[in-house]
């Protein structure tokens, strides 16, 4: 087999796994957009906040430590214990659910029935607010995320591909675990939306508020539920991206990568978010590999957006978005 083809295969595999990471972020957007028609600009910051909280709890940091020290002249930073990863994740989930409740109670409850653009503006405000809270609560230094996920080259794949092709593929263990977790997350979410009472209520609310009320669905409850789910997805994305890049402010910018994914997959489709992520991941990797060298490289920075633009022209609802059915 020619070397070029083997390299292309490796690039593609890595692209696929990268795509899963994009899809993880896109998922959070889809959840909220589907259920409330809100494009949640704060999704990326939620991932940052979740990751910060997780690391903070794990390391036993005192929340708002700087603030407390400043006001009371004390010098406390740590509780002096370390929380095991799983317990810390569970606690962070609780924090995200609490956050969802607060957002619903103090922001969106008062904006029911407003124009989508107003709701969107509210999420922008929310993003900056949360960014500030995150800094204030846990500080702004770059942290190391370690929840026990395997890191580094996968030796098994390396050895086996070497045997077959005479060239060992470099696949990161972290990317593989991200793919497995994303797969489980999506299966779980789809099953939840299709087969459970709460999932059905969620879809009903997304479709028609009046009708949902008339069959006895409590809108507030469903919205808190949806924001909680989005918070949990943000946590998963935060863990994966945080393990890869370190927990830092730039984590909130991964949201930008989710935009082209959403345009490809459709804003309302959970499987679409995954497939859109994969297409973008593979597309940008292969493009960089094949065309990149001819035009000076660094195509990853823009390829996804151009692809999204093409989709906007020819298929504005995305690959899997709900078709707009209108009877005249």
């Amino acid at each position: 087999m020619p070397d070029q083809l083997i390299f292309a295969m490796e690039v593609m595999l890595n692209g696929l796994l990268n795509g899963v990471m994009y899809a993880l972020v896109a998922l959070g957007f889809v959840l909220i957009f589907k259920a409330s028609g809100i494009f949640n600009y704060a999704q990326g910051v939620m991932a940052l906040f979740a990751a910060m909280t997780l690391v903070g709890i794990q390391q036993g940091r005192v929340p708002f430590g700087h603030l407390i020290n400043e006001i009371f002249g004390t010098d406390i930073h740590y509780f002096g214990w370390e929380v095991p990863a799983l317990a810390a994740i569970a606690l962070t989930v609780l924090v995200m659910v609490g956050f969802a409740w607060l957002v619903q109670r103090f922001v969106f409850k008062h904006l029911v029935g407003q124009e989508p653009i107003i709701l969107f503006m509210a999420t922008i405000g929310l993003a900056y607010f949360l960014e500030g809270v995150s800094d204030l609560m846990w500080g702004s230094e770059i942290r190391n995320m370690d929840v026990g996920l395997p890191q580094g080259i996968n030796d098994w794949i390396d050895a086996n591909t070497f045997e077959i092709f005479g060239y060992g593929f470099f696949i990161d263990n972290l990317d593989i675990s991200a793919a497995i977790v994303a797969g489980m997350l999506v299966t779980g979410l789809i099953a939840f939306a299709q087969y459970t009472k709460q999932g059905r209520a969620m879809r009903a609310v997304a479709d028609d508020h009046q009708a949902a009320l008339s069959v006895g669905i409590k809108l507030n409850y469903v919205w808190v539920l949806v924001w909680s789910l989005a918070g949990i997805v943000a946590l998963v994305a935060g863990i994966m991206w945080g393990s890869k890049l370190g927990v830092q402010f730039s984590l909130s910018l991964i949201a930008l990568k989710a935009l082209p994914v959403l345009m490809l997959g459709g804003f309302t489709s959970i499987p679409g978010a995954i497939i859109g992520g994969l297409i973008i991941g593979v597309g940008e990797a292969l493009f960089e590999f094949s065309i990149g060298p001819m035009i000076g490289g660094a195509t990853e920075n823009w390829f996804a957006y151009v692809l999204a633009l093409v989709f906007l022209v020819f298929r504005p609802q995305g690959l899997f978005g709900e078709k707009i059915i209108e009877r005249v």
Partner: peptide
């Protein structure tokens, strides 16, 4: 409802 309020996508 008079003007029908169903979940159109479902």
């Amino acid at each position: 409802f008079q003007n029908i309020a169903l979940f159109e996508g479902m």
